[in-house]
Nucleic acid binder design. Structure first.
Lengths: 151, 151
DNA sequence: TTGCTTGCAAAGTATTTGCACCGGA
DNA sequence: TCCGGTGCAAATACTTTGCAAGCAA
């Protein structure tokens, strides 16, 4: 939509737009949800529910509410869930109009995360889908290794 | 090794070889471990600890022991762990001499699994590792979609 | 007002661990 | 014999859910 300029380089949109997206989903922009959105908006990498909850220090917000907010936001496609293979869910804000699909390079020692904005599997994925008769195929891909500081 | 013929097409090796691999790791081939190995050997796709435990019906074996066996086998590189994004660990037997690296195509509706034996990311992975100064880089990749029967 | 939301507590599920006893090598 | 392995039960960790009260629209 014809949103004007934006003064910050946070990933995703501004609060007003986020509120709008919520309303379109027949949801309310409540205090706790604003906090969760703010927390995600200030994060460069996927955050765990616990990390988000901790970042809300001061503001009272139950951890269960963080989980519920993430569920709502996820259903509306406003946040994307990632799995780093440790059984803990991580979430990242998705920019309006995008699908949030991308990958990460994670240091197995210090947990540093590098965002990989390009996805190089479209062709391969299409080939696999066709070869096996599958449809609506997507994929999850994450890279792991030792970052420069940890080698 | 000069193993003779084998009469089954289970993935991985036979019990004798598996026992040998365990001993080389200074571990014992106990009853429960045999059961876990047998269960994995008869599975074509990654199994959850619970599924493995259930497949041991009749033979008494604690679920905790299944977890501990899988840990040992995993440390010895005899089984490979996979994550299908639902927070449940799944394990597959690795053939001797192989690293077990491969991927899956999973139906999001009926959970049917297709084994994808080829890995097509070597070049891309190398490029990403170099570009970010990472070393010993690996990756986890799984495809999801609707299988022919579920479309 | 109305129905979505929240806090709090309890329940669920997956996985790990302490400990005394048991059994392969 | 000896040390690793096992069953059992309890403990962790992450996530979900029931319920009565609260608040955005």
């Amino acid at each position: 939509m014809g949103t004007g300029h934006q003064h910050c380089q946070h990933r995703g949109a501004n609060l007003a737009e986020l509120a709008d997206r919520l309303r379109r989903g027949a949801r309310k922009l409540t205090g706790p949800r604003q906090l969760v959105l703010e927390s995600l908006r200030h994060s460069r990498h996927p955050q765990t529910p616990k990390e988000i909850h901790a970042a809300l220090a001061g503001q009272p917000c139950d951890l269960a509410t963080v989980y519920r907010s993430l569920k709502v936001l996820s259903d509306l496609g406003m946040v994307q869930r990632f799995d780093f293979g440790d059984g803990i869910a991580r979430f990242e804000l998705v920019a309006e109009g995008r699908d949030g699909h991308h990958h990460h390079l994670i240091c197995t020692r210090c947990a540093r995360v590098v965002e990989l904005d390009e996805c190089f599997l479209d062709e391969i994925q299409q080939r696999i889908a066709t070869a096996n008769g599958f449809r609506a195929v997507t994929h999850k891909l994450e890279f792991f290794g030792l970052c420069p500081d940890c080698q």
